[in-house]
């Protein structure tokens, strides 16, 4: 089937290596080139010295590196840090200015898309439309778990994105919202936290069979019950893979979140085959970023190996569509 899905890399995938000083920004970019992930997302709050103030010197350096490795700046991973001031939230005016600053910084650095977050409010989002249009920038709100459950909130945003904000306001879906089964790292951590392996295996099987939480926890101790509650909460509220079709219409960019891809290039936790088929069928054109997040669980796993497996997985799935 006709498709135009390009692989990108969220540099955040290499958090373990970056924060433990095993890889520099340049080394991560070189790895992106090696993996064929041409489109780049950077989180300035993670990698820009002097953040939230972006210096011209750093922008020059970043542009030089992207050029050196033949990479394309795609997404500026901004935040909406509404709770920075102790005791109060940022006001609407402050959020408006904060977001324009991010749009300007991204523009100067050559990134056409800015990621923001759901707390921005529909009113502020609308007020940013003229700025996005005059700067020729796109602003995308990320939907990451557990925000898939906030359907009313998204309906308000989607209305603006299909309406007056069409073409400059959109969504950045994080595929973590479709994660419907525990992954290897989660299960290993449950055992480290004291879940008896034999019982975890039983609970895991019951979860997959659709057994209710109340039934699944029979015979467990308090700690195991608590962890099981987390299992049901984290993996039991996933969005239906069909939702991505609706999201794709208003997406400029997608976060290919994953925690663990095995040696056969498969992800047990997120239904990638179905998701990518839906993305292609919806006619989405743009980048899909490799976004490894296993570093929440362990800093000893090679992010390069995981990312390479992820790219292989996407390739074989896309080749079969």
């Amino acid at each position: 089937m006709k498709q135009d899905i390009r692989m990108g890399l969220a540099l955040y995938s290499f958090t373990s290596e970056y924060i433990n000083r095993r890889m520099t920004l340049e080394e991560i970019l070189r790895q992106a080139q090696k993996m064929g992930c041409r489109g780049i997302e950077i989180i300035p709050a993670q990698m820009a010295p002097g953040y939230p103030h972006i210096t011209e010197e750093w922008v020059r350096e970043l542009k030089g590196l992207l050029e050196k490795y033949n990479l394309e700046p795609v997404c500026w991973g901004a935040y909406l840090d509404r709770g920075t001031v102790t005791g109060r939230d940022l006001t609407e005016d402050e959020i408006f200015q904060y977001t324009i600053r991010e749009l300007v910084n991204a523009k100067k650095a050559g990134f056409p898309i800015v990621r923001t977050q759901h707390t921005i409010t529909p009113k502020i989002l609308k007020s940013l439309i003229p700025y996005c249009r005059s700067l020729d920038m796109k602003l995308g709100i990320e939907i990451y778990p557990p925000l898939q459950m906030e359907r009313e909130l998204w309906d308000d945003y989607f209305g603006i994105m299909h309406g007056e904000g069409k073409g400059c306001l959109g969504i950045i879906p994080d595929f973590g919202i479709f994660m419907n089964r525990p992954h290897k790292l989660w299960l290993e951590q449950a055992i480290e936290r004291g879940f008896r392996p034999r019982l975890l295996k039983r609970v895991h099987a019951r979860f997959l069979e659709g057994t209710s939480f109340e039934e699944a926890v029979s015979g467990l101790n308090d700690r195991e019950t608590e962890i099981t509650k987390e299992m049901y909460g984290t993996f039991g509220n996933a969005a239906s893979p069909s939702w991505i079709k609706e999201l794709a219409e208003i997406s400029f960019y997608m976060h290919g979140k994953f925690y663990y891809v095995d040696e056969t290039a498969k992800d047990d936790s997120i239904p990638y085959e179905e998701l990518l088929r839906n993305v292609v069928e919806a006619g989405y054109q743009g980048y899909l970023a490799c976004e490894y997040e296993g570093h929440h669980f362990s800093d000893m796993i090679s992010s390069a190996e995981q990312s390479e497996r992820y790219v292989s997985m996407c390739k074989w799935i896309l080749a079969g569509i």
Binding site: D81, G83, V85, T86, H295
Partner: peptide
């Protein structure tokens, strides 16, 4: 963490 923060946090 994976990113920096404001000292107020």
């Amino acid at each position: 963490s994976y990113r920096g923060t404001y000292l107020s946090c």
